[in-house]
Structure formats: structure tokens, C-alpha cells
Amino acid sequence: MTTEIWWTVLGLGAASYAIRLGGFFLALRLPQSGAWARGLDALPGCLIMALVALMMIKGGVIEWVAGLIALLVAAKTRNLPISMLAGVSVVAGLRLFV
């Protein structure tokens, strides 16, 4: 098992680094204007949206309620720590009582 673990650590470490480097070199080759640039500009938003969608699918009603509240607080305050605190408190509170 311990050899297996080391190979996994090294293999996944190397793969992860190759992925990180690959993204930068990929972006170097993409055009700076037009459709490619529009797509690249939209990428961070789409990625975070995809992550949130995945997390919400995995969650239940408590997570949906807390997620909605965190979203409203973030839209209102634009403050990351406060929004995080709101979401975490709602989850903790609801898990306590529901």
C-alpha cells in the first residue's frame, strides 16, 4: 500500500503541475480578440457557476437555503468574509434545529 500511495502522490502531483502549466501555454496560443477572447473572458464566471451547480446538486434543502442567503448577502455587501459567515451560520443553525 505504501508504495502505491507514493506512486499516486507523485503521479497526481506531476499531472496537476502539467495541467497548470498547460493552461498557460494554451492561453498563449489563443487569439487575443474575437470569439476566442470573448470565450476566455467568460471562462472564470462559467467555471465558478459550474462549481456552484455541482455543489448544489450534491447538497440538500439546508444547503440550498444557505446558498441563497449567501448569494443575497454577497449581492448586497460584495464582501466575501461576511457572505461566507452568513452561509456557514445558516447551515450550522439549520443543522442544529432541523
Binding site: 465558478i48 446558498g67 466575501l80 452568513a86 452561509g87 456557514v88
Partner: peptide
């Protein structure tokens, strides 16, 4: 939920 909340808070 902290990490989920961070990602959600990024959306606006």
C-alpha cells in the same frame, strides 16, 4: 459549507 459559500459569494 465554507468553501461552497465562498464560490457562491463570488458570483455577483
Amino acid at each position: 459549507f465554507a468553501i461552497v459559500a465562498v464560490f457562491i459569494a463570488l458570483l455577483p
